[in-house]
């Protein structure tokens, strides 16, 4: 389960996308005001510099993370009675999340050099293909 938790840890990453706050706040823990400034700064930088599509991706990932976290919480509190249903529901979220993350990596202009062969259109097509597979498996698995 540990990796799962790690998974839900990643959730804030999307939220605080560039995520300097965590870093800087840990370094200068004493100065709250300073930290706030840095957070604000990073946030502004993020809002300005990130392409809109990446922002969109981040929104979607945030959404998925929230849904996934909710399901996981529910599972912990109420129990995982139809285990296959829980697995299907949760892994649909996780799967969609990693696929979206992959798409984000591939389409992010910053990673252009890594993916010379993959155009954003191709990446998107791959993404849709993968997602359809995922949805098919999940719906089939939940019966």
């Amino acid at each position: 389960m540990a990796p799962k938790k790690a998974q839900s840890h990643t959730a804030p990453s999307a939220q605080s996308a560039s995520s300097t706050p965590a870093k800087s706040s840990s370094k200068s823990s004493g100065n709250a005001l300073d930290a706030q400034e840095i957070v604000l700064g990073v946030w502004n930088k993020y809002v300005e510099k990130t392409p809109q599509r990446v922002k969109l991706l981040d929104c979607f990932m945030l959404f998925l993370a929230v849904v996934g976290a909710l399901q996981f919480l529910y599972c912990i509190i109420v129990g995982n009675f139809p285990f296959n249903a829980f697995l299907a529901g949760f892994s649909a979220c996780v799967g969609q999340f990693v696929l979206t993350a992959s798409l984000r990596i591939q389409t992010n202009p910053e990673n252009k050099k890594e993916f010379e062969t993959t155009s954003p259109e191709r990446a998107f097509a791959d993404y849709v293909f993968g997602s359809f597979l995922l949805h098919f498996f999940c719906v089939n698995f939940i019966n």
Binding site: V94, A101, S102, Q106, N111, E114, F115, L133
Partner: peptide, 18 residues
Amino acid sequence: SPRLYVSYTSWYALGTLA
């Protein structure tokens, strides 16, 4: 590399479900 991330996660998420 991000390539590893993409290939591994997409394999694992889909492969495990499969």
